[in-house]
Design a protein around this nucleic acid. Structure first.
Lengths: 231, 231
DNA sequence: TCTCATGGCGATACAGTGTATTGAGCGATA
DNA sequence: TATCGCTCAATACACTGTATCGCCATGAGA
């Protein structure tokens, strides 16, 4: 209807051909965004944009944002390989622990999402199942207790490792230099003399390998289990 | 200047006398809101409203929302009483662990905030210091390792306990009945036969006391430490 | 007592969020 | 060909944290 000649009219903003979507594509896009820019970059608008789609289109595949986050979590559980079928309980649990740690390091947002709703996704369930299977005790309550304890340690350890890692990245310094980075505040606090051990930790403690620290703690837990159940 | 008679003019909306504020008042109000309605109820607008103030007024006392959350966390650390000065390492660490668990149960949002930035508030520092003090080992690296491991377990265990508690509250059912509540989905999953142990856990496992489960896991960790360091 | 300056605080504004609703366009069927 | 129905985009709404602006009340000086 416009009487301008075609050449003067701007093309319609070249609709980027609407990709066909799928739940998998959406979850993968969300994961990529989260890996690169943190959880803050996971919004319906941004995920949709990454897929050349309007935000509302996602609601055809996912009912709510929490659901999307659940799917992301389950996807990461899917990356975790179960321990070899016939491994003994100790190496089996060690395997699971390391797999979890590695997954959490690949996807730093992972640990943040674990504090929310319980995970009932298929990969999560498979993960729990295979972990339970490594502990061959008659009493199912004891099996659960052992696995829960190990998982609790793993969560906590990974969480604090990631937290520390973020703090380092934020200041661009290593743990050794952290106190200098956090400025006069920590200096003043330490100078009060109220925290002598903390002072020693920050000044004397060697910058140990994170993996080693993780293993040491894990060793405590596994040793304790061995002692208690006479393995 | 209006020529309506006074009686026809509405009174100015009776300003609720502007309470004098303080950082402490703000933090306490925020904590109360979080205790009652969860972290979602902690917004500058809502906190300010609870104090009969405009939202922007808070910025006089707190520079950013994260800062407010940090203050809330530190306040909770302040509620945690240190172990008696001369307690042995085992009962000292046990004391700390239970205190943390209790605090986290009083303030369910607490555990959610621990995953963020590291805590350098005065109460947090005092807490770490007194925990370190319970482990009397010569090597400061070993002290740190022991404390970190115990804290990691505690975080993880509390986290999963709170998560489970929330899930129960959401469905209004206990863990035993959980599978029935989560509807046909879990039934179907279990019916596939791919998760036999999970099935046993859900059907056979007795509804053990949470505190007991916590203590058992903690026992593993402490036993492991004892074994490794020959206590 | 009157005037003026200062500073604290509320109102407003903005960019972002998740999501409900609406409406347009298109493909398939009658 | 006409109509139905479905898909998706645009719009709208309530809410977030925070920057900016402007009013008003208070305190100082005349």
């Amino acid at each position: 209807m416009s009487n301008e000649p075609v050449w003067d009219r701007p093309e319609p903003p070249s609709k980027p051909s609407p990709t066909p979507l799928s739940r998998e594509l959406i979850v993968n896009a969300a994961i990529r965004l989260a890996d690169e820019g943190g959880l803050d970059d996971v919004s319906f608008r941004k995920v949709a944009a990454a897929l050349n789609a309007g935000p509302m289109r996602l609601y055809g595949y996912v009912e709510t944002k929490d659901e999307l986050l659940d799917l992301m979590v389950d996807e990461v559980y899917g990356e975790i390989t179960p321990p070899p079928a016939k491994s003994d309980w100790r190496s089996g649990l060690k395997h699971v622990a390391h797999e979890m740690r590695n997954a959490a390091k690949r996807h730093e947002w992972f640990i943040d999402l674990l504090s929310g709703r319980p995970h009932q996704g298929p990969h999560s369930l498979a993960h729990i199942e295979s972990t339970l299977a490594t502990v061959r005790l008659a009493d199912i309550d004891q099996v659960l207790g052992v696995v829960s304890a190990v998982m609790a340690y793993v969560f906590g350890a990974v969480r604090s490792e990631i937290t520390e890692l973020r703090a380092e990245r934020a200041t661009g310094l290593t743990e050794e230099q952290w106190q200098r980075a956090s400025g006069p505040y920590m200096e003043r606090m330490l100078a009060t003399g109220r925290f002598p051990l903390l002072g020693r930790v920050m000044h004397e403690s060697t910058d140990r390998d994170h993996a080693e620290v993780f293993d040491t703690g894990l060793g405590y837990v596994l040793d304790g289990i061995a002692v208690r159940h006479g393995f």
